[in-house]
């Protein structure tokens, strides 16, 4: 039998207070998702490597657009063009992305969701639940351990082809 897969969420945000707020808002999912954070893109790349070393499959990245150095949108495009991270769900959480940045994120990084700052904690949780559920269904991760914590009905729908044993 395959060991259960551990899924992770990566938060990339340069302002410490904002980053802590996002991480705190995601705490209700802490028992099923490993939440890691990074303060800029190089730090984020390092975090991805560390998660991979720990056999954590990254399901979702939540990035702010305006970061020191490489922008959040450019990081999303980079993820989308890298085979190992292509399936990762991508959410932009920002107040400062202009029209052009947003269009680039949608067209070149297949952005899954845009959250405008300031965000509502419930909205953020709902977006993360839905996006990680999409990731599980799309990639064939065993949905069972996540039924109680993410979008249960949709995860169950994904199991309606299963046979008895």
């Amino acid at each position: 039998m395959v060991d259960r897969v551990e899924l992770g969420v990566l938060v990339v945000e340069d302002e410490p207070e904002v980053r802590d707020a996002i991480v705190r808002d995601l705490a209700p999912l802490g028992s099923v998702l490993r939440v890691e954070s990074a303060d800029d893109v190089p730090d984020a790349r390092e975090a991805l490597e560390e998660l991979a070393d720990d056999d954590v499959v990254v399901a979702l990245v939540l990035v702010d657009h305006r970061l020191p150095g490489t922008t959040g949108v450019d990081f999303l495009v980079e993820l989308d063009h890298t085979p190992s991270t292509r399936a990762v769900r991508k959410v932009l959480i920002t107040g400062q992305a202009d029209h052009q940045d947003t269009i680039k994120a949608v067209n070149q990084a297949r952005l899954n969701h845009y959250i405008a700052k300031p965000w509502q904690p419930d909205e953020l949780l709902a977006v993360v639940r839905s996006a990680v559920t999409d990731f599980i269904i799309a990639t064939g991760v065993d949905p069972l351990p996540f039924v109680a914590h993410l979008d249960g009905p949709r995860l169950l729908e994904a199991m309606t082809h299963r046979g008895d044993r």
Binding site: R4, A27, S31, L33, R34
Partner: peptide
């Protein structure tokens, strides 16, 4: 690199625990 929320730590530790003898 900042620390992950503390809630994920016990879960992680529990998942890492493997039985002494592998079933397979």
């Amino acid at each position: 690199m900042t620390t992950p929320p503390t809630t994920s730590e016990p879960a992680k530790a529990a998942r890492r625990t493997r039985p002494a003898i592998d079933r397979s």
